[in-house]
Each structure stands twice: as structure tokens, then as C-alpha cells.
Design a protein around this nucleic acid. Structure first.
Lengths: 209, 209
DNA sequence: AACATTTTAAAACAAGTGTTTAATTACAGG
DNA sequence: CCTGTAATTAAACACTTGTTTTAAAATGTT
């Protein structure tokens, strides 16, 4: 059994609690008690709660962002015509690979992203854009190539609709999966949810103008 | 100039702040100072913050819910085959009529609903279901009739995807409309946004299984 | 070994939270 | 008028929050 350092213990406890309860409803005392470290150590290692939130997300984005970039460049180089569903499929592997990175990594990452978008007043959005904006730009570019029949404006709206679908679904994915289990006796995991949502948003994005 | 009673002044201030900043990030002191009433009056009139949140939502649901019920019953009685887009169109008028009920009522209501769904641990969902569950049931019923090719479970998921799209879009509609105006010189209002999102979600919901 | 640095620990801090209390004011009906 | 209920107010309550402080312990370096 290897020894886990305090910094990692905090990140592990924090990401789980953040994903489950949101940022505002998760106190540092809850985090440190679950991580079995001293309260003061989070300020010692991260500076502040805000920076801890960013560090939690950065751990995933540093893995996800290059993987998505690679996946997108791949279809840019190899495909002449790109369909919308292919674009969304670029997200699948980078997302699912997060499960190898950490237990329930995919769910965790998407929940955190969702929480970040609806909870934060902007500091997270700003942090993501200034640190990982290049991938976002590439994604936008590919979507435009996949939908030459749509105007810039139409794409703008539909991508935000898409973002809403994904972010909202993932932010409440745990609750939804539990309800589905209770009401339909259905065993759904995050991979199933992703493959269920992609046809939905692809149909929406590529619907006639 | 008529005198507005304290209870209403609190509700008016609360709904605006709740919609903008969420429930957790809005303190009673912020509400009462904006409403220009005493701090204690919210507990006097509503009992607790939790009950205030419910009262804020109830004010809209009491208007929206019967209007939607009527709209749904109308197509149940008069149509033999119901298309999904017709179902969603049932929402338009009841939603837009909230703008007559209160200034920016449509945006407000959808924002509050979205906040409630992602923030609350369940007490709001429970409150809505036990008080307005009949309309939800009717809506579900109509959607099923419009999509006989889809299983109950599939409909469950797609309706939640839809909810995510709408709620997220409307919650950030103010910012999105401003961006659209700056980037595309496009003049979009809430009504235009609703008519833009309906084809998107209708295509998603009715896409092949 | 001794020194220097990094990390942990307990405690206190200042500020903010929802809620309650007790006293005062407003305003009815008799 | 007076009386009793309703409404408002200022103050305090008990508690939680993120952050700092100060000291001790662990760790690394020469």
C-alpha cells in the first residue's frame, strides 16, 4: 500500500463531494474530514477554495483536452466530409478514457463541468477559456465544417442547446440514473447515457434550418 | 401609486435574486435589503427560507400549470394523431403568457425551474410533484401518444434531455441574446428563442430509437 | 549529528448564515 | 376612545463558513 500525499487526498475527496453536492454546498471541513487531513492543509496546498476548485477541474482537463484535440485533428486530416455524429463521437473516447484515469472519472468530470457552468459566476468559465480555449476553437471549427448548410448564427444557438443538454444531464446524472433504476428497473451507466444522448443532440444540431 | 405589501415585496426581490444567483448564494439579508423590508419578516410571513423558495415557484406554477393543462387537453380532445412538435407547441403560449403576469416572467420562471432542478437535493422536486404532478402526468401521457415507437424509458431520458436544453438555454438566455447581438447583429427575444429551440428538441425527441 | 525547510496540527479569527426573541408600532372592530 | 390582533423592528442567538495564526512535528540536506 503506497502512501498518498495530502494534496492528492484532498483532490480525491473534493472532486467526489463537488460532483455530488456542488461547489457551494461543499465545505472545506467536509472535504478535509473525508480526506482525513487537517483543515488548514487545503489553504496551505492550494491557497483558497476557489483555487482548489480549479485544481480539481484541471486534473481532468489536462487529460481530456489533449485527447480531444488529437481526436478532432484525426478526422480533420482523414475525412473529406464530416458528419455531425462523427464530430460528437470524437468526444466519446476521450471522455470514457477518464474512467481509466480515475474511478468513475467520466461521470465525475462531466458532473464537475456541469456544476461549474451553472454554479460559477464566471471565474471557472474564464479559467477554462484562457487555459483550454484552443480545443474549444478546434471543436467549433469542425462543427462548422460538418454543417455547411447552417449559418454561423444557427450553429451558435444549436451548440448552446447541445451544451445545455449535456451539462444539465450530467450535472444530475446520478439522480437520473437512480430514478431510472427505481422506475424502470433499468441499469444505466455513464457510457450508456453518453450513447443515448449523442443521437438526441446530433438530430437536433443537424435538423433542417 | 399603490402600496405593495411586504409579502409581495419579498417575493419580487427573491425571485429575481434566486434566478440570477441561485438559491444557495442568495442570503435572506440580500433579499430583504433589496426588498426594503426587515430581515425577520421573511420568517414571519413564510416560515423559513425553504418555504420562501417554494412560494416563489408556486406563484408561477399556479399560473403556468392550469394553462398548460388546458392546452394539452385541447389537443387530446381535438386531434387523432399528435406530432411531437405539436406537443411542444402546447408549452409556448402558457410560457409566453407569464410575461404578462410579470416582467420577464418567462425567463424568470424557466431560470428558477432550472436552478431548482440542479441545486435542490430533492425537496423542490418533491414539492412540485406532489402539488403539480397531474400536469406532469398529462404531459407525459401526450408525449407517449405522440411517440408510440418509443419505450417509456426512452421517453423518460429524452424528456430530461429536453428539460436540460430548455432550462439551460433560458437560464442563460440574457447572456446568449447579448452575444448573438454582438457577434451576428441578430435581434432575438425570448419568443424567438423558444421558436428556435422547439425544432431542435422535437428533432431530438422524435429521432429513431 | 545539527540545521533548514516543508508539512502538519490545534486553535482562534472575522464574517456571514438562518432563525428566534422580545419589544414596539399599526390598525382593525367594538 | 380602548382593546386585541397583526405586522414590523432591532437585537441577539447559535451555528457554519473560509482563512490565519502559531506552534509542533516531519522531512531533507550538509
Amino acid at each position: 500500500m503506497q502512501k498518498i500525499d495530502t494534496k492528492t487526498k484532498i483532490l480525491n475527496a473534493a472532486e467526489q463531494l463537488f460532483a455530488e453536492r456542488g461547489f457551494a454546498d461543499t465545505s472545506l471541513r467536509l472535504i478535509t474530514s473525508q480526506a482525513e487531513v487537517n483543515l488548514a492543509s487545503v489553504n496551505y496546498h492550494f491557497g483558497s477554495k476557489k483555487e482548489l476548485i480549479q485544481a480539481v477541474l484541471a486534473r481532468y482537463l489536462d487529460v481530456f483536452s489533449p485527447a480531444l484535440e488529437l481526436s478532432l485533428q484525426n478526422i480533420i486530416d482523414n475525412k473529406d466530409r464530416i458528419s455531425q455524429i462523427e464530430v460528437f463521437n470524437c468526444l466519446v473516447e476521450p471522455l470514457l478514457s477518464l474512467d481509466a484515469f480515475r474511478h468513475q472519472g467520466t461521470t465525475m468530470f462531466l458532473s464537475l463541468l456541469g456544476r461549474g457552468y451553472v454554479e460559477s459566476q464566471g471565474h471557472l468559465r474564464w479559467y477554462i477559456m484562457t487555459n483550454y480555449g484552443n480545443v474549444v476553437a478546434t471543436f467549433n471549427h469542425v462543427v462548422r465544417e460538418a454543417n455547411p448548410h447552417l449559418s454561423k448564427e444557427e450553429i451558435f444557438w444549436r451548440l448552446h442547446f447541445t451544451l445545455g443538454t449535456v451539462v444539465f444531464t450530467m450535472a444530475s446524472s446520478k439522480a437520473l440514473i437512480e430514478i431510472a433504476k427505481a422506475d424502470f428497473n433499468a441499469d444505466v451507466n455513464i457510457e450508456g447515457l453518453i450513447h443515448r444522448v449523442i443521437p438526441f443532440i446530433a438530430a437536433g444540431v443537424s435538423s433542417p434550418a
